[in-house]
Simulated assay, not measured.
Amino acid sequence: MVGVSTSARMLIQKGATRAEALMREIAGQGPEKTLSRGFAIVRTPSGEPLTRAAHVFDNAEIEIQFQDGRVSATSGKHS
């Protein structure tokens, strides 16, 4: 039983270490890397990121950030 317990603790520790390393890698890439792969960031006029369509009202002023700059836009109706 002791061997199983020790083995389980080691596996959990290895998993936690790998998870931490992946999170550091993701955080280190930053939004610029994501934008360079063709994604965009949608923001409120005050600059807060919008992460859900449900947070955007019809005809709301928004800002879309691309790799090469930002554009202002007005949202349409939700579908």
Rank of each mutant, 00 (worst) to 15 (best):
E63F: 05
G15R: 06
P49V: 07
L50V: 15
T34W: 01
I26Y: 03
P31N: 13
A73K: 04
E20M: 03
V2Y: 05
S75E: 04
R9Y: 12
D68E: 12
K77R: 11
P49S: 09
Q13E: 15
S5A: 07
P31R: 10
I41W: 00
R9V: 14
S36L: 03
A21C: 01
V56N: 02
V4T: 15
T6G: 06
N59E: 13
T44G: 05
T6I: 08
S72P: 02
M1T: 11
S7V: 05
E63R: 10
R70N: 10
M1R: 06
R43G: 06
A40M: 10
R70S: 14
F39I: 02
S75F: 09
A60P: 01
V4E: 15
A19M: 06
E61I: 15
G3R: 09
R9D: 14
A21N: 01
M1N: 06
V71I: 13
K14F: 05
G28D: 00
A21Q: 03
V71W: 02
K77G: 12
S72A: 13
A27K: 09
F39V: 03
F66L: 06
A16F: 06
G47W: 00
T17W: 02
I62G: 05
E32G: 01
R52V: 11
E20G: 07
S7K: 05
V71E: 12
T17S: 08
A19G: 07
V42N: 01
S7R: 08
A8F: 11
R43E: 12
Q65H: 06
A60M: 15
R9F: 14
T17P: 00
G38N: 04
V2D: 13
G69R: 02
E25C: 04
M23H: 11
R37E: 14
